[in-house]
Amino acid sequence: MDLSALRVEEVQNVINAMQKILECPICLELIKEPVSTKCDHIFCKFCMLKLLNQKKGPSQCPLCKNDITKRSLQESTRFSQLVEELLKIICAFQLDTGLEYANSYNFAKKENNSPEHLKDEVSIIQSMGYRNRAKRLLQSEPENPSLQETSLSVQLSNLGTVRTLRTKQRIQPQKTSVYIELGSDSSEDTVNKATYCSVGDQELLQITPQGTRDEISLDSAKKAACEFSETDVTNTEHHQPSNNDLNTTEKRAAERHPEKYQGSSVSNLHVEPCGTNTHASSLQHENSSLLLTKDRMNVEKAEFCNKSKQPGLARSQHNRWAGSKETCNDRRTPSTEKKVDLNADPLCERKEWNKQKLPCSENPRDTEDVPWITLNSSIQKVNEWFSRSDELLGSDDSHDGESESNAKVADVLDVLNEVDEYSGSSEKIDLLASDPHEALICKSERVHSKSVESNIEDKIFGKTYRKKASLPNLSHVTENLIIGAFVTEPQIIQERPLTNKLKRKRRPTSGL
Rank of each mutant, 00 (worst) to 15 (best):
L137R: 07
P115K: 10
E181T: 05
T77S: 10
I31L: 11
V154W: 01
Q139I: 09
L82S: 00
L51S: 10
P142G: 08
I31W: 02
T164K: 13
R131D: 12
Q60A: 00
T77Q: 14
V122A: 15
D2V: 04
S140P: 07
S140K: 12
L82M: 03
P115V: 13
T176G: 09
C91L: 15
L28Q: 14
N66V: 13
I15T: 00
D67M: 13
G183R: 09
L3K: 01
E75Y: 00
Y130K: 10
T164A: 15
A92M: 03
Q19P: 01
T176M: 09
N158G: 08
F93T: 03
K32M: 02
L138S: 02
V154C: 02
T161K: 02
R133E: 08
L95A: 06
L118K: 05
R71E: 15
M18C: 01
K294G: 02
K135I: 03
L99D: 02
D2L: 03
I15M: 10
K50Y: 02
S140V: 09
S114A: 06
R166H: 06
V11S: 12
Q174R: 10
T161M: 05
Q81W: 15
T69G: 12
F93V: 04
T167P: 12
N112L: 02
L63P: 04
L138C: 13
K110T: 12
Q126T: 03
S177D: 08
Q126K: 12
P25C: 13
Y179W: 06
Y101E: 11
N106D: 12
N132P: 09
L118R: 11
K193M: 15
E149K: 13
L6R: 09
R133K: 07
P58G: 11
K110D: 08
K65F: 15
A92E: 01
R7P: 09
K20T: 02
L6A: 14
D189F: 08
T69E: 00
L51V: 05
K175R: 07
N103M: 08
H41R: 00
K88M: 15
E141T: 06
T77D: 02
A108F: 06
K50G: 14
N53R: 05
N106Q: 03
L138E: 13
C27M: 01
T161Y: 08
S4A: 02
L3D: 01
D40A: 12
L22H: 00
Y179S: 11
D120T: 09
V8P: 03
Y179Q: 12
Q148D: 05
L30F: 04
S114D: 14
S157I: 05
G98F: 15
F107R: 15
L138P: 03
S114Y: 13
R163I: 14
V11E: 00
S157T: 06
E33Y: 08
S177F: 09
E9G: 04
Q155I: 12
N66R: 06
L28A: 14
E116W: 12
K88T: 05
S140R: 07
Q19H: 10
Q60N: 09
I31Y: 05
L138D: 06
S157Q: 06
T190A: 12
R133Y: 14
L95S: 07
K55C: 15
Q148I: 04
L165Q: 12
T150K: 15
Y105I: 08
K70G: 13
L182F: 12
R166Y: 13
N53V: 12
R7E: 05
S104C: 08
Y179K: 12
L152A: 05
D189Y: 04
R131A: 08
R166K: 07
R7V: 13
R163M: 02
V178S: 12
V11H: 02
D189N: 11
I26A: 08
Q81N: 14
V178G: 10
P58W: 15
K55N: 13
L182G: 05
L147N: 04
T190L: 14
P25L: 01
S146T: 10
G57D: 14
A92T: 03
N106T: 12
S140M: 09
L156Q: 04
E181H: 14
E111R: 08
L138M: 07
T161E: 11
N158F: 06
D120Y: 01
Q19G: 08
S186D: 07
S177T: 04
E100T: 06
H41C: 01
I15R: 00
D120C: 01
Q126M: 04
Q169A: 07
L118I: 06
P25N: 01
S80R: 14
T150N: 14
S151L: 08
L159D: 13
V178Q: 13
N106A: 11
V122E: 04
A92H: 00
D67P: 14
Y105Q: 01
P115W: 14
C47E: 01
Q60S: 14
A134D: 12
N132M: 14
P145I: 14
P142C: 14
E9A: 12
S127N: 01
H41T: 00
K38Q: 01
C39E: 00
G98K: 07
C27T: 00
C44G: 08
R136L: 14
L147M: 04
K135A: 08
K56D: 13
L3R: 07
S114M: 03
V154P: 10
E116G: 07
G57W: 15
E143P: 04
M128A: 06
Q172A: 04
C47V: 01
V154Y: 15
K38H: 12
M18V: 02
R163E: 05
E143D: 05
L95I: 15
G160Y: 03
P34H: 15
L6D: 05
L49T: 14
N53T: 03
V162R: 06
F93A: 02
N16L: 12
I124R: 08
L87G: 13
E149H: 12
I125V: 06
Q169S: 12
N103G: 08
A134S: 05
V11R: 00
I15P: 00
V8Q: 10
A102F: 03
S157K: 04
N16R: 11
D2F: 01
K55A: 05
L51G: 07
G98E: 01
S146R: 11
K135T: 11
S59K: 03
V191A: 07
E116S: 14
A102V: 07
E116M: 03
Q126L: 09
V35Q: 12
E149G: 07
N112M: 15
N158S: 12
L182C: 04
D189R: 04
S157L: 06
F93G: 00
I26L: 13
K251E: 14
R163D: 12
I125F: 13
L22I: 00
I89M: 14
N106C: 04
L63E: 15
C64H: 04
F93P: 00
I31T: 01
V162P: 07
V191M: 05
E10P: 00
V154D: 11
L137E: 07
P209A: 15
N113P: 09
C44V: 00
V191P: 14
S151M: 02
F93N: 00
I89T: 14
L118F: 12
A102P: 13
G98L: 01
A17P: 00
S4R: 10
L99Q: 14
L73A: 02
